[in-house]
Simulated scan of single mutants.
Amino acid sequence: MAVDNEGAARGSHTTDGADGTSWEPDWDDEYAPVVKAAGRQIKLWRESAGLTQQELGDAIGYSLGMVSAVERARRLPHPEFLGKADEVVGAGGKLAALKKDVEEARYPKKVRDLAKLEADAVELGAYGSHNIHGLLQTEEYARALFNMRRPAYSKDDLERHVAARLARQRIFERTPTPTLGFVLDEATLRRPLGGRMVLRHQLEHLLEIGQLRHVEIQVMPLDREDHAGMGGQLQVLKLKDGTAVAYSEAQLITHLVSDPKEVQVLELRYGIIRAQALSPRESSAFIEKLLGEIT
């Protein structure tokens, strides 16, 4: 991550859309040792049990190529892989114990970085202009969104990104609870990404999440003549240490802003967006009305 002349840290990826600049695994970060250690442990336990890669694969329902790739840290083992391998080689739970760390390594690094910030936030405010915010997405909506990505994700990468997005939603269950606010452009509520039933379930989910005491969901109607969010979607996070950071997004690029002056601009902009949007109660009624229009 580079730092520009104004002092704002800038990323080179999107955080909440379905786009990105790389198709390659990004395990060459702090999780690389976890991935490599898992592969070594699987190989050691397999050899100790006197099994070839083919025999282990046959026993747990995976191909020779998959077992080989996992042992060489070229592919991440699924939790099911670890569980079955643990039983077959008699590891006594030692391989199964790797599930949590390996599962976290499955998530793209850029998503883990964002999730860490969200986990440290005491307050989060976000404005979405072209799709429902990732923290509010249903699984089927998120999968439809990632499935639209061009160039297309592989099946494994698609599932990896969906799982990472859903994992971020644990923020709603965190204690102490952070204050979460979302302003959704009306267009995001009308755009039937994935189909009309996917949209219907998504709107129902918004109504459910909006009932949480620490969550406020607002709608920015299309008929507004004054709109402070025309520069695109943004997110502002106030952290436990009293500092704040912000995100703004564009094609292929997300700017992570940490310079206090720039963060202040985006905080001000988000505050105006909230004031221009419908109130949470009006927004709930608006979403219910949209639900009634879906047949």
Rank of each mutant, 00 (worst) to 15 (best):
H78K: 13
L82P: 08
L114E: 14
G93V: 07
S68P: 01
A121G: 11
M66R: 09
A49C: 07
V111T: 13
G125W: 11
Y107G: 06
A144P: 03
A96K: 02
K84Q: 11
Y62A: 11
P108S: 10
A73Q: 03
D113E: 15
G92H: 07
A126T: 03
K99A: 15
L145G: 05
S48T: 11
S129H: 14
V111N: 06
E87S: 11
P108D: 11
A96F: 12
V102N: 00
V102E: 02
P108I: 02
A69W: 07
A115Q: 14
V89E: 10
K109S: 15
L98N: 01
V88Q: 09
M66S: 10
E80V: 11
E104V: 11
D58Q: 07
L135V: 01
E103Q: 12
E47S: 09
A73T: 03
N131H: 15
A142H: 05
E118K: 00
H133K: 02
A105I: 10
A49K: 01
H130G: 00
Y141G: 02
D86N: 02
K116T: 14
I60D: 06
V111K: 04
V111L: 14
L64I: 08
K109Q: 15
L114W: 13
V89R: 01
A121D: 10
N131A: 13
E139L: 05
E139H: 09
G61F: 04
A69M: 09
G57R: 02
E55N: 06
G50Y: 09
L82G: 08
H133E: 13
L95E: 10
L56G: 04
Q137T: 01
D120Q: 08
Y141K: 00
P79R: 07
I132N: 05
A85E: 05
A69H: 08
L135C: 06
R74H: 14
D120H: 00
T138W: 06
R75E: 13
L98D: 01
E139K: 12
V88N: 10
G65A: 14
P79D: 09
M66W: 06
G134L: 05
E87L: 14
L136F: 03
V111E: 12
L117W: 13
V102W: 03
E47Q: 13
P108C: 12
K84P: 09
H133R: 05
H130Q: 10
V111M: 14
L51E: 14
M66T: 09
G92T: 05
G90W: 00
G57M: 02
I132W: 10
A85D: 07
A119M: 03
H130K: 00
G61D: 06
I60W: 04
M66Q: 11
K116Q: 15
S63W: 07
G134F: 08
R106F: 12
G90N: 02
P108E: 09
V89S: 10
L98K: 00
G57I: 01
L136Y: 03
K94H: 09
K109R: 10
R75T: 03
E118D: 13
E55A: 12
L95R: 01
S129C: 11
E47F: 01
L56N: 04
Y107W: 13
T138I: 06
V70S: 04
Y127E: 04
L145V: 03
